[in-house]
Design a protein around this nucleic acid. Structure first.
Length: 307
DNA sequence: TGTATTTGACCTCA
DNA sequence: TGAGGTCAAATACA
């Protein structure tokens, strides 16, 4: 396996971690045969095993269309390129849209909207389904169009428009159209107001700010600020897990964005100044994982294995 | 195989 | 007429 994908990099690092954990177990055994810390090392080893298994299981997945498109991009000047494979037939539309024809609802441009600006996240407690994306003049990032996921079952007509600003740290202009008439509206509203008594998100704390420094480095590539880098397993529906890095606290926070209950994925003591920690410190080259911080496909699969 | 997402095409409005 | 908004076929994934 090559290291040209994030999953491959994670697999490589987890293998290193597995070896390191085994080594740690040996050290602990040698230092103190009856040490309860051995169980901790064994637990780390088990976690690594599960992650590696999960990653290997994902290696046979189909590739995204975007990856095919990337490959189909014109090669560098002078480079030979094979004849293009037969592409898919051009897309065609079945019906013709007219306003008020019943085919679809089209809101008037500049219609009444509740606008809100959030920093670093677009999560608002509702479950949204993405139905469109558009490049907008004057904006570096495309505008995303969402409608309530309960539109079909409950006829909820709420929609929202998400536009990432050019600000650093990243902020999102979110315009809401229509009101939620679905049953989840009340609970979500409470969630928004912090009234639901939701527990704090689980924390993935690697005890090192190497994530942060790497996020900084990668931010320039992907346009993300170091203050908050987020990748969702289901970024459009937002009914999944967010994996957020908070530069202020140097923590990666992994939380279920759809359900109120959150689960602790993994937590480890950090910044301890004992030989074990010193051993662990520097064993894992996590920096390279963040060469592409926005593609955590493999990591999210790993998360699923811990549920 | 069903469901969600992506993305090019098409429609409306300013 | 172009920009913005939406549709729906193609595609990805569980």
């Amino acid at each position: 396996m090559t290291l040209d994908t994030p999953a491959a990099v994670v697999l490589e690092l987890m293998t290193m971690g597995q070896q390191s954990a085994a080594h740690l177990g040996d050290l602990l055994r040698a230092a103190s045969p009856a040490s309860p810390h051995q169980e901790l090392a064994a637990e780390i080893l088990r976690c690594c095993d599960r992650v590696i298994d999960a990653l290997r299981a994902t290696s046979g997945r189909k590739r995204k269309a975007a990856e095919y498109q990337a490959e189909a991009a014109p090669p560098a000047a002078g480079a030979w390129s094979p004849p293009p494979p037969p592409g898919p037939p051009p897309k065609r539309r079945r019906g013709v849209l007219t306003n008020g024809s019943g085919v679809g609802f089209r809101r008037a441009r500049g219609a009444e909207a509740v606008k809100e600006v959030t920093s670093g996240t677009t999560v608002d407690g509702f479950i949204w389904r993405k139905y469109g994306q558009k490049d907008i003049n004057g904006y570096k990032h495309p505008r995303l169009y969402y409608r309530c996921a309960h539109r079909q079952q409950q006829g909820c007509n709420a929609t929202r428009r998400v536009q990432r600003t050019r600000e650093q740290p990243p902020a999102y202009e979110i315009a809401y159209y229509g009101e939620h008439t679905c049953r989840g509206a009340t609970a979500a509203a409470c969630h928004q107001l912090g009234l639901g008594g939701a527990p704090p998100p689980g924390v993935v704390d690697f005890g090192s700010n190497s994530w942060g420094s790497s996020a900084d480095a990668s931010a320039s590539q992907g346009g993300w600020s170091s203050s908050s880098v987020s990748a969702s397993a289901s970024p459009s529906s937002e009914a999944g897990f967010d994996f957020d890095f908070e530069a202020q606290t140097h923590e990666w926070k992994w939380h279920d964005t759809a359900a109120v209950d959150t689960k602790l994925v993994c937590a480890a003591p950090c910044y301890a100044s004992d030989p074990v920690t010193e051993f662990l410190d520097g064993c894992l080259g996590w920096e390279s994982v963040l060469n592409d911080p926005l593609d955590f496909t493999g990591l999210h699969h790993i998360a699923a294995t811990f549920q």
